[in-house]
Structure formats: C-alpha cells, structure tokens
Amino acid sequence: MRPILSIAGTTVGEAIRRRVLLIILLVGILFLAIAPGLSILSARQERAVLIGLTLGVIQLTSVVIAIVLTVYMIPNEIERRTIYTILCKPVQRWQFLVGKYLGAVAALALMMAMMTVVLIVVYAIQQQVYSPDQLAPLAKAPVMFFVQMSLLAAVAIFFSTFVTPLVNFFLSGGLYLIGSAFSSFFESISQSANVQPFAKGIATFANMILPNFAYYNVQNPLINPQQAIQNETVYYIQVTVYGLFYIGILLVGGILIFDRREV
C-alpha cells in the first residue's frame, strides 16, 4: 500500500505544478466568479441561472482537467523514462498504475473542492443566504460530478496504457459524450415498438458495456428544487457503487494491458 500512496502523493504534487491544469482551473474559477453577473440579467430566473451556470462551469472544467490530467500520465513517464526509476524499486506495475490513478483522483478532488467552495461563496453572497442548511445541498452535485470525473479519469488511464495521449484525449472525450447521451437514446430505443428485437438487443448490450456518465448529472433538481426526489441518498450511493464497479473494471483492464506492455 505504501508504494501506491507514495506514487499517488507524487502525482498530486506533479498535477498541482502543471501550469496547463492551473490555467484551466483559474479560468473555471473566473467563470464561477462572474456567474452572478450573468444570472442577474435573467428574468425571474436568477437563482436557477446562477446554479445552472456555476454547476455547468464546474462540470465542464472538471471534464477538461480530468482528461488533460490523466491522458499524459503514463505516456509521459514512459517517454521521459522516469518510469524506470520507479519500476526498478520494489514497486509492481499494478501499484504504479493504481498509485497514478489515485493521485489523479486526489488532484481532481482538490481542484473540484476549490471550485465548489467558490460556488458556495458566490451563491451565498448573491442570494444573501448564509445558513449551512441551505448551502450544503449545493455540494451534492459537485460530489456526484467528482464520482463522474473519477470514472472519466479511469477511462483515460485505461486508454493511456496502450494509446498515445492525443488519441486518448479524443477517445476519452468521445466516450464521455456517448456515455452522457446514450442512456436517453437507449431508453427511446427500448421503448419504441418499431425497433426490431435485434437492434434492441444491441442497444441493451451497448448500454451495459458503456459507462453511463449521465447517471451523475443530478443538478436539475438542485436548480429546480420544486421537484421531489424520492430516495435521493440511496440513488447517490447506488451510482457511486456503480462508478466504483466500473472504475474497478477499467483499472483491472489497465493493469492487465500495462503488465504486458514493453516500457
């Protein structure tokens, strides 16, 4: 466990020092800070627009950070040959991979936490709401986004064991898009009477194989709080477990591939 934690700690340090990530983070925070200005301009929807915009900015920024952070992780180590200095120590490849992943997730958590704090401060100031009871629910969506980004990071790190960063960028980004949109599409297909059973079977198979990123888009009830969601906490736990399952699959797959790879 120690080597994993050690590699994770080093990865967090590297991530914090990477200027490109800091710039993305700063841009995100800047957008969060100016969001109240935009929400004031919206007729009768100040609150909804403020939360919608800020959560959207956090999610979008996190997607970019998650992909940019992870696509370069393994290939850079191989390219710079720094991986030799690690693997020559009593560290196994799977430990290296898991350590890298955990480091990426920790860095993501740090950056997303910063953005969430800015979101809560901005919301409190703009809405003149300072009660923790009213502010705490805002953190629900970023927490779910964090699970979503952890899953995305796992996807990216899986691909990074066998494809180049550029290809990985588009692969991971593409899978995120498909994984976000497919569920609605799948539901339409499965409910349509005109679709042939064969096509339905393929859709069902694809729905089971593809990671479903849409499950984590829970922001709508926060933006429109009139909706009553039953068993919200149970749902959050279920999708987190689902995410952990998927992350496990991707990491194991990554380990199997990385183990056979020549470095």
């Binding site: 935009l38 919206s42 627009v49 403020l50 919608g52 959207g56 999610q59 898009l177 849409a214 709508n220």
Partner: peptide, 11 residues
C-alpha cells in the same frame, strides 16, 4: 447531449 443542458439553458 454532454450533460450541460442546464448550462446552455441558463446562458
């Protein structure tokens, strides 16, 4: 489609 409906709606 990428899950940013509310962001687009707000803008």
């Amino acid at each position: 489609l990428a899950g940013f409906r509310e962001l687009i709606a707000g803008i």
